[in-house]
């Protein structure tokens, strides 16, 4: 082969080099284009299912320790010597926070009350579901606990008995006005009301196994005392 032909050949290969380099990008772009066109409709359909199955705000592993319920136990004021008023602001607790103590002559112990309703919280005390109004607000404040632990004596309450709830924002006295019994599937006594009341309930003790019935009391407010400060009266 003459020198001329040799250099002609190498020039040809050299001239093809940009084509060799550009072609993968061209194929890649064309593939992405085809993929976009082909996938646009199925993705639109799939997106709905994906958004239901994978919710970005639920990016947590149920088995990891740092997720789930955060329980907060608070010291509730027993005595308050500061300024008080008949009306005031309630403090909205966070989910899993202990915010009150219920006491009554028939209860053997003062019952801590947690905000929220979870099996884990029911092991620690009584629970107030976040759907009802906070104790001290206008409306129906609903509190429940297990019959074999904290509300074992709930059915001993009679009409006219006193119930007291202490919180860090006030002290609330109630009188039992009605004894109630309802099916576990009924929300007759648990739904919001126009009047201010306290509803306490638990499972009805049955001879064997679980009961479908719930028993409890409805209490009407007798006296509400709101604390002006939350430091025990500024001692």
């Amino acid at each position: 082969m003459s020198e001329e032909k040799k250099s002609e050949k190498s020039e040809k290969v050299g001239s093809r080099l940009p084509l060799y380099l550009v072609t993968p990008f061209l194929v890649f772009s064309l593939c992405l284009g085809v993929l976009l066109v082909v996938m646009i409709k199925p993705y639109d359909k799939l997106k709905v299912y994906l958004n239901v199955a994978f919710m970005d705000n639920l990016k947590s592993d149920p088995l990891e320790d740092n997720t789930g319920l955060v329980i907060k136990n608070n010291e509730i004021l027993e005595e308050y010597s500061g300024e008080t008023s008949d009306t005031g602001e309630v403090m909205h607790p966070s989910f899993g926070e202990q915010f009150a103590i219920i006491s009554s002559d028939v209860f053997e112990v003062d019952v801590p009350v947690y905000w929220g309703s979870e099996a884990e919280l029911l092991e620690l005390g009584a629970c107030q579901p976040s759907g009802s109004v906070v104790v001290g607000s206008e409306g129906n404040a609903v509190i429940s606990a297990h019959v074999d632990t904290f509300f074992a004596n709930l059915t001993d309450l009679q009409v006219g008995d006193s119930v007291q709830i202490k919180t860090n924002y006030g002290k609330f006295d109630y009188k039992v006005s009605e004894l109630i019994e309802f099916k576990s599937t009924s929300n007759k006594y648990l739904k919001p009301t126009d009047d201010t009341r306290l509803t306490l309930y638990t499972c009805k003790k049955d001879v064997l196994g679980g009961s479908d019935m719930r028993v409890g009391v409805i209490c009407t407010p007798e006296k509400s005392v709101f604390y002006k400060t939350q430091d025990g009266g500024g001692q």
Binding site: A53, F54, M55, D56, L58, K59, S60, P62, L63
Partner: peptide, 19 residues
């Protein structure tokens, strides 16, 4: 991005096998 961790069903056994 740990996309599968956002799987909605959080029942531990279901979450574990699916993810």
């Amino acid at each position: 991005t740990g996309y599968f961790k956002s799987f909605s069903i959080k029942e531990p056994q279901v979450f574990t096998v699916f993810t």
